[in-house]
């Protein structure tokens, strides 16, 4: 059989340049060096899992472990390494980081979304989300040399609470708009076409995506912090407020990283699992829930903060590339569409 010509191979999707290979390699090196110097241990965990943490906003890739003698077993490609890394934490790992592939199904691919992507995730013990802001600033400052516009990635970054962001861009006092009917009315007044079946969370996201996110300051990276409790996630609640200890980092309007002070309270975790588990029943791909996760953290486990950062998105921003496909070798969106 004749060997395929180089041109034929290169014509399948965009060719990968040596320059891009070097840039990715340099970001890997810099990331590993940075976290190692800060005392974090690098770990690597499985991509296939028999159960997951439920997240109703994410669709999952499913596969089967075949057995000739027993029932086949469903396995899932991880949407993030969280499920494993938190197990390592309770087993005494200390501060850890990982760069790993992660998978999200269904997500409409495009400028900022690929089904398979690289995630940098790290956990810090005895730390909260405010501490994670500082280490994130230090990490990005350390990668700034890869950019033609290094000042953009150097600290200090901007900090804005969700409450302030809503007030500034929509005039809405979100803290006082905690019931669904009031928020629905406001969304209608703002001509955002809210639907009768919208939950508080959906209404919040409608307003956020339409009027807040596009108007966030873009001249420096921005920590948008204190997210509403009514958008369920695994972040610790701030007592006496409708907020949780969570931030997202935006650079040039691109959502780059997500951080929590991790919820470790059993009751709160059980409640999250039963609520999100129920919501997950409407998902296209249903999956088993991790039975141990809600019981994972012993009483008195130290405060812990975790950050997940889109590694490809960071490279895209550093190199001023217009889309994710430009910084990933053989992006799935390219292969599938051709």
């Amino acid at each position: 059989m004749p060997l395929p010509l180089l041109e034929e191979i290169q014509s399948q999707g965009k060719p990968v340049t040596r320059e891009l290979m070097e840039k990715r390699a340099r970001l890997f090196e810099e990331t590993r060096g940075f976290f190692k110097n800060q005392g974090y241990l690098e770990v690597d965990t499985p991509l296939l899992a028999p159960y997951l943490i439920p997240e109703s906003s994410i669709e999952i890739f499913k596969t089967d472990l075949l057995s000739p003698y027993r029932k086949n077993k469903e396995l899932y490609l991880i949407p993030s390494p969280e499920i494993w890394m938190k197990r390592l934490l309770v087993q005494g790992s200390g501060n850890i980081f990982q760069i790993t592939k992660s998978f999200r199904n269904w997500e409409q691919t495009g400028r900022l979304h690929e089904n398979e992507f690289t995630l940098l995730e790290w956990y810090t013990l005895e730390a909260d989300y405010k501490f994670s802001m500082e280490i994130t600033e230090d990490y990005l400052s350390a990668t700034a040399f890869l950019s033609d516009n290094p000042d953009m990635f150097k600290k200090p970054f901007l900090r804005l609470s969700m409450q302030e962001a809503f007030l500034e861009n929509t005039g809405l006092d979100l803290e006082k708009l905690q019931d669904r009917e009031h928020l629905f009315e406001k969304a209608r007044e703002l001509d955002l076409n809210p639907q009768n079946e919208d939950t508080w969370e959906t209404l919040f996201h409608r307003i956020f995506v339409s009027l807040v996110e596009p108007r966030l300051p873009q001249d420096k990276p921005l920590f948008l912090y204190d997210y509403p409790t009514q958008a369920p996630c695994l972040a610790k609640k701030i007592p006496g407020t409708p907020w949780v200890e969570r931030w997202e980092l935006y650079i040039h309007g691109v959502e780059l990283a997500n951080c929590f002070t991790e919820e470790t309270d059993r009751e709160a975790l059980r409640e999250y699992f039963s609520r999100e588990g129920l919501a997950k029943e409407k998902a296209e791909v249903k999956h088993s829930l991790d039975p141990l996760f809600p019981e994972l953290f012993p009483k008195g486990f130290p405060k812990t903060s975790g950050v997940a950062l889109g590694f490809d998105r960071l490279l895209m921003l550093l190199t001023d590339t217009p889309s994710l496909g430009g910084v990933i070798f053989f992006p799935l969106s390219d292969i599938v569409e051709s």
């Binding site: 409409q108 900022l112 979304h113 995506v209 997500n258």
Partner: peptide, 26 residues
């Protein structure tokens, strides 16, 4: 453009042109 706010449902951001008036909506 598709946007997935972290931990939220998928949204699509559109730029539309009114074909009678030329007015642009986003």
């Amino acid at each position: 453009e598709f946007v997935n706010p972290g931990k939220g449902a998928a949204f699509v951001r559109l730029k539309l042109k009114n074909l009678r008036t030329g007015q642009v909506l986003r």
